[in-house]
Amino acid sequence: MGGVYPVFIMKALCFALFACAFNLLIGFGGLLSFGHAMFLGTAGYVSAHAAKVWGLPPEVAILAGTLASTALGALTGALAIRRQGIYFAMITLAMAQMIFFFYLQTPFTGGEDGIQSVPRGRMFGVLDLSNVLVMYYVVLAIFLAGFLAIRRIIHSPFGQVLKAIRENEPRAISLGYDADRYKLIAFVLSAALSGVAGATKAIVFQLASLTDVQWQMSGEVVLMTLLGGMGTVFGPVVGAFTIISLEHFLADRGQWVTVITGAIFVVCVLAFRRGIVGELAAWWAKRRG
């Protein structure tokens, strides 16, 4: 097989969708969640369980995982949007930790072994996902659907109100918008799309493990989004591909991956705060204007 290794791109695509979903919340809603791993992981566990134990076909398993994340998003969101800034972040982090310990203890997740050997099955009864290329194009389609949905959300009236709330919440309220409702909907949408990413990832890797619910994963998605460009449409995709490639190249360096990504984070925050895509867009605008 020539070309770029498909499994690698599938992983990057899942994380790109995850980062896009996260970006919907922070880039357009101005809400920094530090617990987004819980949505990725929950959907992963539920879809892996659905596919392996209940024997559901992959599309239903992914749907089940997404629904679970959506429900968790509604619950967490209802609690978290009552507070702002650091308190919002702390509530999401605390919820994510509770969810992590739940998955660590509960028997169906298999503890630190994770749910293994998840069957990929046949999508819609015809697409044999055990073929790498079929799986690849299914993942690409899922990613594109999620990506375009986010773009649509951002440019809808709903998205405009969300941006207004991000810029000046009291003014948006004074204009008659129910800010809490908008924030909650944004939170649930973000959780649902993170869920799609997590569920797809579980089917691709035939595995759901604690890595996806750990707090490090919540930090990683913040890093991807910031590096690529928070509040830009393509930023999270670029950020996710950059970070996943780095991890891939440096896999034999072990824990150095963490050090290097940390250093990149510092450089990014200090030197180019708009992220890769944000800086490029600003440079382009300046050249033209």
Binding site: N168, R171, G231, T232, V233, F234, V277, A281, A282, A285
Partner: peptide, 12 residues
């Protein structure tokens, strides 16, 4: 309203 619209402008 915050004049900071760079992030929005970054939208293609």
């Amino acid at each position: 309203v915050s004049p900071e619209v760079e992030v929005l402008a970054a939208d293609p």
